[in-house]
């Protein structure tokens, strides 16, 4: 993954064919792994309107699904994701760049939740089933794509350096 063009409101990022396939695979996970509606508060129950909390949670999950569909459509649009030798040139505006980051990370979190929200940092492990192995692999893959995309968003092409 490499930033080719960075202009106000527009970026072109080079994706290796493998990265393009990985992005599609990770985004496809949303159909297999449902996100859990997040809680709106951890405070004392009853201090916040219950209906507002439920609506907010449902809205977040529905929003992620809509963003996943839009991002998949972008990756499949031959005019915005131009196939070249050995890869793709993906052209995005600010909103699309941010959306791609959000859905890739959303897929990572969805895998983690489907694994039972384990704390791998503290040594917690999950049962070694085929499904769990797939989820761990996709979670790590999504994390690598998030890191790569963040680098592209925050980086420069090098052209503007002295």
């Amino acid at each position: 993954m490499k930033l080719l063009v960075s202009e106000p409101g527009r970026r072109v990022v080079q994706l290796a064919a493998r990265e393009w396939q990985q992005m599609r695979a990770v985004l496809g996970l949303f159909q297999q792994v449902a996100r859990r509606p997040p809680p709106i508060t951890r405070g004392v129950a009853g201090e916040l309107p219950a209906d507002a909390a439920a609506m907010l949670a449902a809205d977040v999950v529905a929003g992620l699904e809509a963003e996943r569909s839009a991002t998949l459509a972008l990756l499949d649009d031959p005019e915005r994701c131009v196939k070249g030798k050995g890869g793709y040139g993906l052209q995005v505006d600010e909103v699309e760049a941010d959306r791609l980051l959000r859905v890739l990370n959303g897929a990572r979190v969805a895998c983690w939740e489907a694994l039972g929200s384990p704390n791998f940092e503290s040594g917690e492990r999950v049962e070694g089933t085929d499904r769990n192995r797939m989820l761990v692999t996709m979670m790590e893959l999504a994390g690598a794509l998030v890191s790569g995309w963040l680098t592209c968003l925050e980086g420069t092409t090098g052209a503007e350096e002295p």
């Binding site: 709106i40 508060t41 405070g43 907010l56 809205d59």
Partner: peptide, 19 residues
């Protein structure tokens, strides 16, 4: 605060609203 929590949760961060 609710709008901020909504935004942060759309990025999958564990954000909440507390009195």
């Amino acid at each position: 605060a609710e709008a901020h929590v909504h935004q942060l949760q759309s990025y999958s961060l564990q954000a909440t609203l507390e009195k």
